[in-house]
């Protein structure tokens, strides 16, 4: 990627290696992740460190991981895509409508997946057109499409869930491939593809340039509106994949599933060191950040069985902790970042 750890390493010789490492956001994140692992492990003991807990975590975090990749794409370019959850639900619903009530019939699986991806690309084109060509600010444009797309999904289903898919399709969310959960495989594939796209292709470099300095990008001859369309199509496509994983795992599609994922995805991206003003972000950061959030979340879940903390732990404690963590990490990044 454009800046950060790799280039700061050969810094002034007077500073210790540790001080240099502490300046790398990726290293700080690694410490946070390990600290959470140790903390939750020591609080919950064998319940947390068991094979079963890790296996169940591996099914849970890929969804959030793909959403975080999606929001990172838009953050890198200096925008934000608030509509990812709505896109995922609409795409999932499109696939769900094709698949529903065909438990034995697996010939529809491929068309359903393709339809979901096409729907998400169309949503991305809409976002990109609004932002790139109509010049609406990303926050407002995606705020609008978030409502609009969720509304369309509501109107299509009248708020009901569309459920009951072929078993073969459900493997996307529940199956394993050589003992590795399929959703995890999908997440890692998305992460790898995005990493290659961002670091090895001209498109990736251009997206980062646009995020670092949009004015300079224009003068460098980049076609900003076209790049913005590509950005939001990419983020919508990732959202669509997440949507497929969601409906395969839960065996149902709903217009308003997982709305809390939006905040969590932003949280993961910020934890990962993605600069919300654009220009910087790494896939490795996302991997670590989503893991640390999962440790926190599973750990808090298990704390419900703790004799003292138990009564105070519920879903709202998690919401509280996420918010606190987001603020804390941002403040920390900023303090350490400014010293440089």
């Amino acid at each position: 990627m454009l800046t950060s750890h790799a280039k700061t390493l050969p810094a002034k010789p007077s500073r210790t290696t540790l001080a240099v490492l502490a300046e790398s956001s990726l290293f700080r994140l690694l410490v946070v992740t390990l600290a959470l692992l140790v903390l939750m492990g020591s609080l919950n003991g064998s319940r947390f460190l068991s094979y079963r807990n890790f296996a169940s975590m591996c099914f849970q975090f890929p969804e959030l991981g793909v959403f975080s990749l999606a929001i990172m794409v838009s953050l890198i370019t200096g925008g934000i895509d608030l509509s990812i959850i709505s896109i995922a639900n609409l795409a999932g619903l499109a696939a769900g409508l094709v698949l529903a009530h065909s438990s034995a019939n697996s010939t529809r699986i491929l068309p359903a997946i393709l339809l979901a991806l096409v729907v998400s690309i169309l949503c991305g084109l809409l976002n990109g057109w609004l932002i790139g060509y109509l010049r609406i600010t990303p926050i407002l444009a995606t705020l609008g499409t978030m409502q609009l797309l969720m509304g369309i999904a509501f109107a299509l289903t009248k708020g009901h869930a569309v459920a009951g898919y072929p078993d073969a399709f459900q493997t996307l969310g529940n199956g394993t491939l050589f003992h590795v959960p399929v959703p995890l495989v999908l997440f890692l594939l998305c992460a790898l593809a995005l990493q290659i796209l961002l670091s090895r292709t001209t498109l990736g470099i251009r997206l980062c340039m646009m995020g670092t300095n949009p004015t300079a990008a224009v003068f460098a001859g980049l076609h900003v509106p076209r790049l913005q369309v590509k950005t939001y199509v990419l983020s919508a496509l990732l959202a669509g994949i997440a949507g497929l994983i969601v409906i395969a795992r839960t065996n149902s599609a709903k217009a308003d599933y997982g709305t809390s994922y939006l905040l969590q995805a932003v949280l993961v991206a910020i934890l990962a060191g993605v600069d919300p003003r654009g220009g910087f972000g790494t896939v490795w950061g996302i991997l670590l950040a989503v893991l640390s959030l999962q440790f926190l979340s599973s750990g808090l879940n298990l704390l419900q069985f703790h004799e003292f903390a138990g009564p105070y732990i519920n879903n709202f404690t998690k919401e509280f902790t996420w918010g606190a963590l987001l603020l804390l990490v941002m403040a920390l990044h900023r303090r350490i970042g400014r010293r440089r």
Partner: peptide
């Protein structure tokens, strides 16, 4: 810090605190 992200975080902080405690 960017205002959108601070208030996104504090919204979840306030709401979480209210409902949990």
């Amino acid at each position: 810090l960017p205002t959108l992200i601070v208030t996104l975080g504090s919204a979840s902080l306030f709401r979480g605190f209210l409902l949990a405690f």
